[in-house]
Amino acid sequence: MNRMTLDQFEDALEEIGYITERDDRIALTAFLATELGKPLLISGPAGVGKTEIAKVLSQVFGAPLIRLQCYEGLDETKALYEWNYQRQLLKIQMSQDKLKEEDLFSSDYLLPRPLLQALVNPEKSVLLVDEIDKTDSEFEAFLFELLGEFQVTIPEMGTIRAQEPPIVVLTSNGERDLSDGLKRRCIFLNVEPPSVNKEVRILRKKVADLPERLALEVARAVHILRGRLSLNKVPSVSETMDWAKALLVMGKNDLDPAWVEATLTLLLKSQDDVDLFYREMGAERLLFEASKLGQEERHAHGKQS
């Protein structure tokens, strides 16, 4: 893999359609992690595009993406390797006399799981350890050797070192605190929901034929919802896209209160949040606040120029 400069990296992101801004520092931090050869730990609320960063890195570097989805109770047999017990048993039955113990504990009988796959892959890969905060602290400690040295130790076989150290991306929703040991080994990136400007760019890139005016109104309204109401679940970028697509399909060029109410459930996915919206804001107020935000943006823009 050829080394890149930061500018080239940013261009590559642009080319594959991933939108970043200077202020979000996503490009710089991801670039830094790859250059330092350190795992990238990404935190932030659900739906801001943490997992997407790993996918994008895989595209930029042309490296396969190997994904480990974490959950409570995940252990090394699901994450690292497991012995192919049935195959070992067959081997024992077939050659009972001539069999040596080391014959049974060779790579032929090893079932590599995502972590080991990423290590033994002869080419560079991107290893995504998604939602690391869902696992327990023992599993986190188990990852230290992999994240620090890019190697794992299998008691029966010895240490396996990465042929080509993978680019490791870990994501966390911050459900629980990660250990200091894990954090120390990583480069850290906190991703916040996108700014209005960035979300407009994302919408226009991902939703074909979306008029700029509608994109702006949608992004501003979602920005207000995220910031002003303490919702149980803030709308994610993909939900904003769904909303914009729905409005486009309905032939809308701008937002009006009736349509906001009709399509609200695309953004707010729990009855509590919907109730909160009607109690504290309502569609008309939302649009009023969104247009006020637009005026403020124009005002700030006018001052700058």
Partner: peptide, 25 residues
């Protein structure tokens, strides 16, 4: 990190230091 990205741009310096020294939002 600073050696790789240079120190000419204050914003970049801040980003590098934040990414390497701060591990909790």
């Amino acid at each position: 990190g600073l050696t790789i990205l240079g120190m000419a741009d204050k914003n970049k310096v801040e980003a590098v230091l934040q990414a390497t020294l701060v591990k909790d939002a």
